[in-house]
Design a protein around this nucleic acid. Structure first.
Length: 619
DNA sequence: TTAGGGTTAG
């Protein structure tokens, strides 16, 4: 290496481009070597060289090393401060960004727009609205004229912090509307549940790019509008845009929510065709999707196709959850052991799944053991959801007192789910006294909880305490608390059909009810008698029978029997838990009509075949 | 040196 003079000498101006290249390829080794060379040549006190070195360290995630260089610098300009702040921002060290800003102001360096934008980004990501407002005040105080970039950062900060009024106010003043700011608005409105407002902003965009489309699709998927998400995905393709992995994650999630297997298979093919099939997050999402669409076979296939070394804790947990949902606790527990053997550390969510598997299969001792293991071996402190699973497990298995003791022993206030689990166990086992207590505690936390009122009323009904039943019903009526209406979905010939309880809006309504009559008479020949015990309203027996027979899943089932080929499995998705009568009904249909039926209810799957259900009537 | 999309696990 020749210094100075003529020709190809290396001087201090040679370093920044090399450092930039190192940062791009994340070459920390190269960066360090260059650092050494720069020191030897005496350029290590050159601000440009130093800033370049910081950039390399930050690109490689070595913020601490970057800070060492930073602290040694005698002359720091605004860019230097900005690079350091960006480093902290990238590592999620948002408080350090703010501390650095204070330090910078003390040092007398004036911030520029880019730096303010970086700080706003830190506030945005950490949800620190107060600091974000502080930066805005600073901008106003110093009379800084905002460009569209800085305005967008500000709008993003407000949106991310959920302050949509403030975000909207700034957005109104923005002309023309910046695409990035608009996307932030779409996300912000989606996050606070104002999906209509998000859609309006989205629709007003003249030029939409992949990110804005994906934000809107994800908004729908996150807000319980999976059908809209799929529709928009379709529109996006019509508009000529190609989705990427991030878009596909929302689409997969929408399919999982809907539970529609045909659509799910189509999405899977689409993913393979577009070469996303090797992406781990996509495969994890596919496992979840197939499990929620009722196909453990396809979920397992995806799981086994992922090379063992690439599976992460999400892969394993998704697969375990799948088996747990379908009531196969044995396989779920085997997977849990295998996961440990493979050296993948289970986390808090894994334990929810494993405990959930035990609870749905009635494995009390195993559940107790794992609950203890969680704290003793893995140092994971049980949270509400773990207690919820345990209360459910013990309660369902009729260890109601032990279940209550566990609730009392909780180191924090039990939430609605915990009391709800106990309440539901009390209903199963007819414990009026404890049920009343659980309902009381639950309703203290959430007086409008429809499920709690319904369960309490069921408990009273089981004990034949009709006056109390009447009281609960009166209270619900006065307060306008209604039981959520049952709704079931079935996919046939590429179309989704939805049925509400006693629905008469479907175009094949007459045939469906005729089919229902036919099915009922056939089932009666093998001993079926409608079980009206779960009907809450005040009706005579005959009317109750009708209400029971018109449950949405029975309508969907009849539609399936009419419209699906004899050898195909009937898949139904329901919003509530399956009632006792429907459960019996479905078991009998699977036998009499020789059909396999898969029902996803609010909490789990039921596979009906040859007159038995996979849940072994334990649900 | 600055701004937008990640319900893949409960």
């Amino acid at each position: 290496m020749r210094r100075g003079g003529e020709g190809v000498g290396v001087d201090r101006f040679s370093f920044p481009p090399i450092l930039k290249a190192s940062a791009r390829v994340c070459g920390v080794k190269e960066g360090m070597e260059i650092h050494g060379v720069a020191e030897k040549m005496g350029f290590d006190s050159d601000p440009y060289v130093q800033t370049g070195l910081m950039g390399v360290y930050i690109a490689c995630g070595r913020v601490f090393e970057a800070r060492l260089v930073f602290d040694k610098m005698l002359h720091k300009d605004v860019v230097t401060w900005c690079v350091m702040m960006d480093g902290y921002c990238q590592r999620g060290l948002y408080e350090d960004v703010l501390l650095l800003f204070e330090e910078m102001k003390r040092s007398g360096v004036e911030p520029d727009k880019m730096l303010l934008s970086t700080i706003l980004s830190a506030c945005s990501r950490s949800g620190d609205l107060n600091s974000g407002k502080g930066i805005y005040d600073y901008i106003l105080e110093k009379n800084i004229v905002m460009d569209s970039h800085l305005k967008s950062s500000l709008i993003t900060m407000y949106s991310n912090c959920g302050s949509m009024d403030l975000a909207q106010h700034l957005y109104n003043e923005m002309t023309p509307k910046d695409l990035i700011a608009s996307t932030s608005m779409v996300m912000g409105y989606s996050k606070v549940g104002k999906i209509g407002a998000a859609r309006s902003i989205f629709d007003e965009l003249v030029e939409k790019d992949l990110v804005s489309w994906s934000a809107m699709i994800s908004g729908y998927a996150e807000s319980d509008w999976p059908l809209e998400a799929l529709k928009l995905f379709n529109d996006m393709q019509q508009a000529g845009l190609r989705p990427d992995q991030i878009t596909m994650l929302s689409v997969i999630s929408a399919c999982a929510q809907l539970g529609i297997l045909d659509q799910a298979k189509w999405v899977h093919l689409f993913i393979d065709k577009n070469c996303f099939g090797d992406v781990l997050s996509i495969n994890n999402a596919l496992i979840d999707m197939y499990a929620k669409c009722g196909s453990l076979e396809n979920a397992s296939r995806v799981f086994h196709k992922i090379p063992e070394r690439r599976r992460n804790v999400i892969t394993w947990t998704s697969m375990i959850t799948g088996f747990a949902m379908h009531g196969d606790a044995g396989t779920a527990l085997r997977l849990f052991d295998q996961m440990n053997a493979d050296g993948i550390e289970p986390n808090s969510i894994t334990f929810v799944s494993v405990l959930y598997a035990c609870s749905h299969a009635g494995l009390v001792d195993k559940g107790r053991h794992i609950f203890a293991l969680m704290t003793n071996k893995y140092n994971i402190l049980p949270k509400q959801e773990h207690y919820g699973c345990m209360v459910d497990l013990l309660g369902r298995a009729n260890f109601l007192r032990e279940s209550l003791d566990l609730v009392k022993s909780m180191p924090f206030t039990p939430n609605v789910v915990v009391w709800g689990s106990l309440l539901s166990a009390c209903r199963v086992h007819g414990d009026v006294e404890l049920g009343e207590l659980a309902a009381k505690r639950l309703l203290e936390l959430d007086p409008e909880h429809d499920g709690a009122h319904v369960l309490l009323s069921n408990i009273y009904a089981k004990a034949r305490r009709w006056e109390d039943v009447g009281e609960v019903r009166k209270f619900m009526k006065n307060r306008g608390i209604a039981k959520e209406r049952g709704c079931s979905r079935i996919e046939a010939n590429g179309e989704i059909h939805e049925f509400l309880m006693s629905d008469k809006t479907h175009k094949q309504t007459d045939e469906i009810y005729e089919k229902l009559d036919e099915v009922v008479s056939k089932l009666k020949l093998v001993g079926y008698a409608p079980n009206t015990s779960s009907v809450l309203v005040d009706l005579d027996e005959e009317e109750k029978k009708e209400v029971i027979l018109w449950h949405s899943e029975k309508l969907a089932l009849c539609y399936g029997l009419m419209n699906l080929g004899n050898d195909s499995c009937i898949h139904i998705v329901k919003n509530l838990r399956v009632c006792k009568d429907c459960h019996t009904f479905f078991k009998l249909v699977s036998k009499v009509f020789e059909r396999e039926i898969v029902v996803r209810d609010r909490t789990r799957f039921h596979h009906y075949k040859d007159g038995v259900c996979s849940c072994k009537d334990y649900w």
